[in-house]
Simulated assay, not measured.
Amino acid sequence: MEKKIVNAYFALAVVCVVWGTTYFAMRIGVETFPAFLFSGIRQVTAGLLMVLILLLSGQKITISRRDITRQFVAGTLMIALGNGVVGWAERYIPSGLAALIVSVMPVYVVLIGYASGTDRKAVNAHLVIGLLLGCIGVALIFRDNLADLGNTNYFVGILAAFFACFCWAAGTVYTKHKPSAAKTLVNVAFQLTSGGLVLLVGSIFLDDYSELNTVSTDSIWALVYLILFGSLASYGCFLYALKHLPSGLASVYAYVNPFIALLLGYFFLDERLTWVTALALTVTLCGVYFINKSYQVKRIRRTTSLKT
């Protein structure tokens, strides 16, 4: 296996673990901090730090106007409308549930790729089975939350999380099929900064700044953690994995993240965890297996066809 592919799998593993903890950190952060301002500060700071790191390491920041536009679109979709809206939704729904909703993202990735004609050949029986199992896993979790849908804020939070999930999936497909000629870390810097700026502008119209008078120390530490690990380190890993792995495979982190988020929410935020969650875990991990299997089958077929 090529070294780049091995590194891509390692980067994907980092994303699976670290992004699972970000739902927990975001829940703590937005509890006392204006949600969009919180995410905007997080992403802009991480983006500027990335630029600083690149400059201090002697690397040239070279990027074309076309690629700047592409990174702005990707940053708006994934950072602002994706990650930022999820953070806002966590003011009204548990962090574990937010992560579970985002786990349907691979379904969106496949559907968007198929509808746009960019990834129709990737669909096979294994992939369909894997995506269906992932959806069943999410449905099992909702079995314990149906009664809460009568709460307006809770329902709006769920809708917002689904919208954010769709935007992140659209950004994933866009980034995969509109690649930038710039280096990965340069793309990271531009996506984080542009998405963060969109969030800061949105914050002016959507946030209540009076909440700044009651910001807790825990929220500040959550912000620091998310800047350094949730954005700066793991987002670079995500873009690297996305560049060297199929978009459907690179998105399987969305199946692992919810269970890390659920466990953290259960132990530290008193969020509910039942036997249904354990069943959902089993079903969803089976889905991950089939998704991985689908791309292995695809690679084997492609290699065989080339040899013949």
Rank of each mutant, 00 (worst) to 15 (best):
Q71Y: 11
V297M: 05
L146R: 06
S180H: 01
A280F: 04
V297H: 12
I28W: 06
T22H: 01
P106Q: 01
L199G: 06
G248R: 04
R302H: 11
A161D: 08
V173F: 09
A250D: 11
L281W: 06
T175E: 12
Q59F: 15
V256E: 06
H244E: 14
V215G: 03
L212H: 00
A261M: 07
A122P: 06
W19F: 13
L200K: 07
Y255I: 02
K178L: 09
I101D: 01
F163G: 10
G29Q: 11
A74D: 11
D119K: 01
D148F: 13
F155V: 02
A11V: 08
R299D: 13
L37Q: 04
G195S: 10
S216T: 15
T45C: 11
G40W: 02
I300C: 03
Y240A: 02
L185W: 13
G150S: 13
A181H: 06
L97R: 05
T76Q: 10
A139D: 01
K3M: 13
K178R: 14
Y23E: 03
Y235K: 08
L212I: 01
I227N: 14
P179G: 04
A74E: 12
G130I: 08
T76K: 10
H126T: 09
C237D: 08
L249E: 07
E31I: 05
A261H: 03
P246W: 06
S116A: 11
T274Y: 12
V86H: 03
H126W: 13
L228R: 08
T69N: 07
V128R: 02
V198Q: 12
E2P: 14
G248M: 06
V156C: 09
I28L: 14
D148H: 12
L232D: 05
L245A: 03
S64F: 03
C237S: 15
T118A: 09
V30F: 09
G137L: 05
V252E: 07
G236S: 04
V138S: 08
R65I: 05
L37Y: 07
V173D: 12
L239E: 06
T21F: 14
I141K: 13
I260R: 00
T152L: 15
T118D: 10
S194P: 13
K60T: 15
S116M: 11
A222F: 04
V252F: 03
L140G: 14
